[in-house]
Amino acid sequence: MRIAVQEEEFDLGAEANAFAAGDAANGAIVTFTGVVRDLATGDLDVMEIEHYPGMTERALTKIAQDAKERWSLGDVLVIHRHGRLAPGDRIMMVATASPHRKDAFEAAEYLMDYLKSRAPFWKKEITTSGADWVAAKDEDEDALTRW
C-alpha cells in the first residue's frame, strides 16, 4: 500500500506500470485518475488545493486500510496533489489490485467516494473574475451511504 500527498506532478504511466508489476496473483488492476476540469465558462486559471498536513495522510491511510478489510485487495495506491494546478493537470489517482475484477472496481469507487468527503482537501477556483472555494456537494456525502 502506498499513500502519497505531494505538490509535484506524477507520471500516470510510470505509476500504473509500477503498480501493475506487483504480485501476479492480482489478475485485476483498476486505476482512476482525476483531472482539473475547466469551468463551463472556460475561464478557470488556477485550481488551488489546500490540505491539512498530517491529517491528510492519516485519513487516506485509514480509507485505504478500510478498503483492504472490505475487499480482497493485493495492493492499493493513492496519490493526491496539493498546491496550484491548471485545467488539464492531474489532481490525483487511485489504483487497486485484486485477484478479482469486481473487488478492484468496487474498492476503487469506495476509495474515490471517501476521498471526496473524508480526506481534508479544499479546492479554490481562481478565474479572471475572482476566486471561490468549491462547495461540497450533498450528493458526495450521500454517496457514502451506499457503502
Binding site: 491539512y52 490525483m92 471526496k116 468527503s117 481534508p120 479544499w122 462547495a135 461540497a136
Partner: peptide
C-alpha cells in the same frame, strides 16, 4: 483542534 468547511477532495 482544527476547524474547516466540508472537505472537497478527489
Amino acid at each position: 483542534v482544527a476547524f474547516f468547511p466540508p472537505m472537497t477532495g478527489g
